[in-house]
Design a protein around this nucleic acid. Sequence first.
DNA 1: TTGGAATGTCAACAAGGCTGACGTATGCTG
DNA 2: CAGCATACGTCAGCCTTGTTGACATTCCAA
Lengths: 169, 169
Amino acid sequence: MSDGRSAQVYGGESLLFLTDEQLRQGIEAMFFAYRGFTADPDRILGEMAYGRAHHRAVHFINRAPGTTVNNLLAILGVTKQSLNRVLRTLIADGLVESRVGTSDKRERHLFLTDPGRALEGQLSDAQRARMRAAFREAGPEAVAGFKQVLEAMMDSDMRRAYTKLRDGA
Amino acid sequence: MSDGRSAQVYGGESLLFLTDEQLRQGIEAMFFAYRGFTADPDRILGEMAYGRAHHRAVHFINRAPGTTVNNLLAILGVTKQSLNRVLRTLIADGLVESRVGTSDKRERHLFLTDPGRALEGQLSDAQRARMRAAFREAGPEAVAGFKQVLEAMMDSDMRRAYTKLRDGA
DNA sequence: TTGGAATGTCAACAAGGCTGACGTATGCTG
DNA sequence: CAGCATACGTCAGCCTTGTTGACATTCCAA
């Protein structure tokens, strides 16, 4: 598997993009790019008492207002204790509102307040700016390929969450 | 910036791939895909006393044998205290060897031992398997686009490190 | 009415970032 | 040679964010 021969030409089809060397490039590209991807919001969050976990929570609450805690848990892939710690501070600081469910009163539905929306906007503006610059530099076809590969890289659970968010909130 | 109008058609050129909606998809794709990207090595590491930080160190030492501590520091983007904690355990466990430099005796050159190479192989086999499946599913053109966008998303420092590793170790 | 689901909370812990301070060995430069 | 800079290691302490385990509460549903 790591003998560097995983991309022999066989069946008459060139698979040079599957060499270990190509795969290693992809791995390192993901590593370095993810750093850039999080750098701008991290800078903003560093000036406050918040971290990346707060950003993620705020992002997905904004994305799907009224989502339940359990729902958010599944998307973020952390324990309820971890998420709860983050949510508690966001609620205490008045950025997130938690409303008891109407049909099922066990559930809590989460919403951003105005200040919460303001923070979300600030963070995602920064992140979008970098994404926009990268998309513009690479061009539409590259962007399509970028999304295809990323989607194929997800665990099936995450892929379902991703496409669900994408195709209709 | 977040008014959803950032992708008007102007100058006669369609920029529909730059809508806030498209950018948000890219952001979420990065988030979900990165989880998949790290999942397999994390599972392996979880069974040992190691974490993601050890994986990163081992990866880049394998990638550039004899690299110095300072060099690795720059690539990983962490403090020397953070890296040192990781390196100390790897050296103590006999996975990494640290040799005093010959020309400059202040420098330490880092190498994987045989057991170190074995671990690196195990981790990168797992990570490559997922990357290979994703590349195969998406196809060569998507892979090219994937790399283009990721490269464009990096900070310039990281981009330099990435291309340097890519074009000639 | 009872079991289970959804939520919240407390405690304890670990990984892995960070800063600051300090020490040592080595290299370079005036 | 003296002095400053560089490379590295280390100690101490802090933060965020993840984990497990235990337990209480609330409420739906069989």
